[in-house]
Design a protein around this nucleic acid. Sequence first.
RNA 1: UCCGACUUAGCUCAGCGGUAGAGCAAUCGGCUGUUAACCGAUUGGUCGUUGGUUCGAUCCCAACAGUCGGAGCCA
Length: 461
Amino acid sequence: MLKRQKVKELLDSKTAQEKVLLKGWVRTRRDAKDFSFVEINDGSCLKNIQVIANNNLNNYEDVKKLTTGSSVAVEGALVESKGGSQKYEVVAESVFVYDYADEDFPLQKKKHTDEYLRTIAHLRPRTNKYGAAFRVRSTLSYAIHKFFQERGFRYVHTPIITGSDAEGAGEMFRVTTLDMENPPKVAGKVDYKQDFFGKEAHLTVSGQLNGEMYAMGLGDIYTFGPTFRAENSNTTRHAAEFWMIEPEMAFADIFDDMDCAEDMVKFITKYVMDNCAEDIELFAKFVDPTLMETLNTIVNNDFARITYSEAIEIMKKSDFKFEYAPEYGIDMQTEHERFLAEVHFKKPVIVRDYPKEIKAFYMKLNADGKTVAAMDVLVPRIGELIGGSQREEHYDVLVQKIKDMGMKVEDYDWYLDSRRYGSVPHAGFGLGFERMMMLITGITNIRDVIPFPRTPNSISF
RNA sequence: UCCGACUUAGCUCAGCGGUAGAGCAAUCGGCUGUUAACCGAUUGGUCGUUGGUUCGAUCCCAACAGUCGGAGCCA
């Protein structure tokens, strides 16, 4: 029996072939006098393959009814094309129609807006742009695993349901099996002792605290999984469900952390450029004309490295008109981050040593007593791509920081154990996977780099 | 959550105080090794919802809803 070949294999074929079998979806059909051109795409690559269906086919009438979106199997000869736009085409000996797409198939042979395609997110992978985006998403995921695995990092699956209200990284989604209409109550309050886990449970906002524990056993680890934030944020850069990569390295300081982050961003960018060249080309052509320049800048240059106070000084000295004046002690605004990466350095920048007041409790207090060993990687257009830090490894300092920030020490009992039993310096960071996707494709809305995005008031599909 | 813009045919949009138009799509026909093919015809809309102003509202006003953009939160 004839083995099916993907469109990519056929177009990459070294020679013409007498007999091939291909399967896919019709992108467009053009009728000529005695035959039809049918363009088939199967998702294996951006390009379609052109099929010549002559009117001597016994079901030629069926071929002439093929609409955009219909599914077919074609047997025939792979021959060099007489037309100019493609190397090969397939002259059909038989065309089997799996299914006709109804005439109200919403994808037309024209450009659709991203807003419209979002309303048909279940069908948009059949378009050129979204096909390319999600091929890139797959390759980018692989590149991340490849980067860490090749460097001896272990992949840790941290829990998605969590009982700790730990990190304070944002509002959390509650997980419960209680009857919401009529929950059990004690003294007027919901009695979570009767809930599934016997206490309150939520979807994770970060795997970091769990990841740190595994770094204390396995050495270097990384997590790569879904993360959830119940924040009511309506921006092009936030989703309620997104994927995060969180490496954690034992015996590492903030400089090791920055090196790792920079190496990783460069590696995965290069990997996608090399392995999704055709798809990236589409984005450079139709989505962001400056994309190639941006990607080359990332791959070919050292990232700028400055401290938070230096960043504030740079911004104060510039005559750039900020909506919010940069001031030491306040967290950087989106416009500040973008100024540094886009306007001042024109390449990725790593800012470190932030005032302790504006950063999380687990970050290591620097010798000055005022700043913490935190670092953010800022990139053009996106702003913050990565946030990381060296962790506070001293038990007493960490306990004091927990108290200072008004949190309960007993909630962090298990976490504090790591500082009691063989504590070591360690560091890690979090990379928002979708933000990396946006950086690498030039797509400006996070909703367009997630197959089925979840944002406030939006959970169709 | 705050600020702003938008909401007219399946899609992208134009329009105007006197109840609507184009391109594309779809359907039918024609022509052609075409390639977002081309040419012709046809079909297709209670102009987001509710209220108000007016002789009369798709158009002006208000509220609400939805979408988009910016901000905050962050990844």
